[in-house]
Amino acid sequence: MAILNLSINKKKYSVDVDPSTPLLWVIRDTIGLKGTKFGCGEGFCGCCTVHINGEAAFSCSTAVKDAVNKEITTLEGMQEKPLRKIIDAWLEQEVSQCGYCQPGQIMSAASLLLKNPKPTDDQIETAMTGNLCRCGTYTRIKKAIHKVIAEGGIK
């Protein structure tokens, strides 16, 4: 166990955990932010996607010690405008079915759009292919991303 300092959604947290604990479980169990989901635990599904210094990362496969002193963003950090525009597009296009994978989908899409406000379809495909949706909502995810792009992005 060790005391580690984390910055999540611009808030500082100090946690006492085993440094090899996956960031996912620190976020969910220790800090109590439940928007980041557990899907596979091994980097295959993207449910656990967060941003670390703006880059989309699988929090299930990132040791918490590697996220120290970096800026972590989770779904809960996407709730204010302009970032929120992506969630609004998701709601408006009624993307979700069960909604369980969507936090991860949103974080992957957001990381892409923050770096590249006008991605091509191929770039979108590359960014989104790591996120599984068992309910099969990919067509709508694509539409929602296009809507955000058309409306000027999330910056």
Binding site: G35, T74, E76, Q79, W90, L91, E94, Q102, P103, I106
Partner: peptide
């Protein structure tokens, strides 16, 4: 619009 979606996409602990 689905009634359960806003809270799910807000990351509320509903699952």
């Amino acid at each position: 619009h689905r009634l359960d979606m806003p809270e799910k996409l807000a990351g509320k602990p509903v699952f």
